[in-house]
């Protein structure tokens, strides 16, 4: 194992890790937004919105994220969407993650007993009031863990933007493998940084999950 080489190149990996983190945070925020909208559409009382929500989930979960990213980045200019690689990465991965989060959020909401909403309605609360005061706080607690799984997947999926040349961890590893012919060392550097990010995120999710539970 070439420790000298690793020590020489690790600052570049560290810098790339920040790009991976930034990419993950922005993608997660967009994903949560899309997931919330998607779940709202899927649970809407209007059939058109329900259909749109279901089609969104089905298509984006049914095709490879890499292809979605390519359509947006390479195909976007044909329909007037001009994005740089980083923007395309955030938007493409965010929309993709949103489809998975839609199902997570919707699943948590529909798992709350119907009697809860009924009890709110009989007290005179409106549909919306009983949703956000009664159903949502309970569903929110149930969502933390599965959204954490979505987040874990999302962080690993940010590696895909290497294929459109965003200089993040996987791209950096690929480039140094090409120039140094030391695949194992480069994998180790990138892998350790990924595992730190994923481990820290996992701890954060576990902490949040513990914090929101009712004792």
């Amino acid at each position: 194992m070439d420790i000298d080489l690793m020590l020489r190149v690790y600052p570049f990996f560290l810098e790339a890790a920040w790009t991976t983190i930034l990419l993950s945070v922005l993608t997660a925020l967009l994903g949560l937004t899309m997931g919330t909208l998607g779940a709202a559409a899927r649970l809407s009382r209007f059939a058109v919105l329900r259909f749109i929500g279901a089609a969104y989930v089905s298509f984006f979960r049914g095709t490879p994220a890499l292809i979605q990213l390519f359509i947006l980045y390479f195909g976007g200019p044909q329909i007037g969407i001009q994005l740089d690689a980083f923007e395309a990465g955030v938007i493409g991965l965010g929309i993709n993650a949103g489809a998975y989060m839609t199902e997570t959020i919707r699943g948590a909401i529909i798992s709350i007993d119907k009697g809860q909403k009924e009890a709110g309605r009989t007290l005179g609360l409106s549909n919306w009031q009983s949703f956000y005061k009664i159903t949502l706080p309970q569903a929110g607690r149930l969502m933390v863990r599965p959204l954490g799984v979505n987040l874990n997947m999302l962080i690993k999926a940010t590696a895909l933007v290497a294929a459109i040349s965003v200089v993040e961890l996987t791209y950096t590893a690929q480039r140094y493998i090409g120039s140094t012919y030391k695949p194992f060392e480069m994998f180790l550097l990138a892998g350790i940084l990924y595992m730190i990010i994923i481990y820290a995120t996992g701890r954060g999710v576990a902490w949040l999950d513990r914090k929101v539970q009712i004792t």
Partner: peptide
């Protein structure tokens, strides 16, 4: 919603808000 404020209801399975 206004009418229901005047009518209390108690359910078989309580439906207390667990949170």
């Amino acid at each position: 919603n206004e009418m229901r404020q005047d009518v209390g209801m108690v359910f078989q399975h309580f439906n207390l808000f667990p949170h």
